[in-house]
Design a binder for these strands. Structure first.
Lengths: 333, 333
DNA sequence: CCCGTTCATCGAAGCGCTTCGACACCGAGG
DNA sequence: CCTCGGTGTCGAAGCGCTTCGATGAACGGG
């Protein structure tokens, strides 16, 4: 409970018998320092347990060494992916000696304004950017370094990172086609997600449809309660009795879809093949284990931070799409 | 892209024709300022779009107005609860004019050390504290204001917040007993969680067992893949043919348990009543909708922040347990 | 042997804010 | 009429750090 007077750079300087600025240069490496002096300083740092004061450092250097992570945190989000993403962002940021300030989208554009103007953060990572997102114009105007996860309608001059969802949808369709399936369906996100204009759902559907040229292919939204899923699945097979391939792009519904198929007496993969677009652990936990396309949330987080750091250093940073990866398991043939 | 020279308090003072300190006092309210001056200053603030520089403020006032949120972010966590919690922490912190720095537990005690010593944050919120947590002794020694979510073995002198899991377990048992069930079972967390000594799983079991005095009651760990769950459920009914009441304290397994019961031809609630300990949305999404005990993640987050703020103001803050709430739906009779 | 370089280090000037003590002004009480 | 205690405001001293320009020592080339 004792509140020790905190150790300052001056204490370190005194202890090592050098000037304050010398300590600073040892720590930042911005000027050459002789090996012996450096050694002495570092020892003093260790001996005193010195940690630079973040506020003072930020004030003097105009760099807070903190980035903001703006998460949607609204209903209907894909939580596991979000968490993986957040984890990898934090870990990667730490590698670059930065910390992460957590913000929720419900603070809105003002929140972004606030943290940027107060120099609380050096840059921004915005997740789940929508096709027409009110934050995008602000971001442009602010000129604050930022990286978006997802692609807004007009991505010109912005740095965006995302999974290539069109490719993911296509991959699924192609895999089913290669298995000889002639009639396939995509069970997508809940209807509200399409209405909101979240790009990824739309792009998956487009990729799926385009790749299914030549086959009979339908794409339908999919809610997330068991009863609604069961209903949707039943309807699907009523309308398309010849359906033998199913793509599920809705993590919360995956389990329900399998249960519904079981209830309908259709076995997987004998009667119907199922491909899911979801994290590996969900696919592996299902029965049978699902052939799936991975959402590489960790890579996305990692790349996003990498790009942001480049921008902070004044380097150019181009948008990028990450390649989806198909893993074949037991649910398709 | 234009990088505007940022507006400082000196600019505001000049614009309003007052001293810098006057502006500061208007903004902080720490000294009386005449209504007219205050008005003038606030107008200048608005006119110039002034936002105080966070670093400078932190340096001068020794308060960063940031708290750290340390999340486990390891496998096997209950994601939705975590997110709800995080969201409410951020929202509540903002109400107190604080921001939230996100940290993951894998930085370990050094991470805590670092942010505390560098005055990056004023206080800490640790989630998912284990019975014997290596961070607890450090926290004691550091004397940094903190609030823990969960109870370590020795909670003396620490402020902890948690759901009253013992009560939650008891509530489930009592509800089943009241429904006339004589033979009941608890399906708990995966075995590894018990081995890790995470308190909540253990405490739920204890509460359940104690409240089930007079009934036949068993408690078993429960893994999270469909196949393992189905196996566990089958075994349970093989060994206890008279079993009619089930408590599930494992969010990831809830769906699988229901599916397994369906597969065994036991209908809910006719043959067996099921109570889940999980968030409401999971309970409602199941079929039939589950009678459940709510984990009030939002309240926990809110209270945790409230307590931490009190500590930052030098006020005392006692540990507290939050009352669980049973909602009766269609899965029990 | 002197001068121009290079290398290592130092001192001091801020960065933008809070806070303390001082001060001027005003009305009330003696 | 003078003093006293509030009020409202100001000026200046830091907070702990980075960074710029200056300085001194060591050194090689002419």
């Amino acid at each position: 409970m004792r509140k020790v007077r905190t150790v300052t750079i001056a204490d370190v300087a005194r202890h090592a018998g050098v000037a304050v600025s010398t300590v600073s240069y040892v720590l930042s490496g911005k000027r050459a320092i002789s090996a012996t002096t450096r050694q002495r300083v570092l020892e003093s740092v260790r001996a005193l347990g010195y940690h630079p004061n973040a506020g003072a450092r930020a004030l003097a250097s105009k760099r807070a060494n903190v980035i903001a992570l703006v998460l949607p945190l609204r209903a209907g989000m894909n939580l596991p992916v979000l968490m993986q993403f957040a984890t990898s962002v934090v870990a990667t940021a730490r590698q670059f000696d930065h910390d992460v300030l957590l913000m929720t989208a419900d603070e809105g554009p003002e929140g972004i304004q606030r943290v940027a103007a107060s120099a609380l953060v050096d840059g921004l990572l915005l997740m789940d950017v929508e096709v027409r997102d009110p934050r995008v114009p602000l971001l442009r105007e602010l000129g604050e370094p930022s990286v978006l996860i997802g692609f807004p309608a007009d991505a010109d001059g912005l740095t965006c990172v995302d999974l290539d969802f069109a490719r993911a949808g296509a991959l699924c369709a192609e895999h089913l086609a290669a298995g000889g399936h002639r009639e396939i369906a995509l069970l997508g996100a809940p209807r509200v997600v399409y209405e909101r204009g979240t790009g990824f759902a739309e792009r998956t559907r487009a990729g799926f449809t385009a790749a299914a040229r030549g086959l009979t292919a339908v794409a339908v939204p999919c809610e997330e309660t068991y009863d609604e899923v069961a209903e949707t699945v039943k309807l699907l097979f009523d309308r398309h009795p010849g359906l033998t391939g199913l793509v599920v792009h809705n993590e919360a519904a995956v389990g329900h879809v399998l249960a519904a198929l079981r209830a309908l007496g259709r076995s997987v993969p004998e009667d119907v093949s199922v491909v899911a677009i979801c994290p590996d652990d969900v696919a592996e936990r299902a029965s049978p284990a699902l052939t799936s396309v991975l959402i590489p949330a960790e890579d996305v987080g990692h790349e996003a931070v990498r790009l942001l750091m480049a921008k902070l250093d004044g380097l150019p940073a181009d948008s990028m799409l990450l390649e989806p990866r198909l893993t074949i398991r037991e649910s398709t043939r």
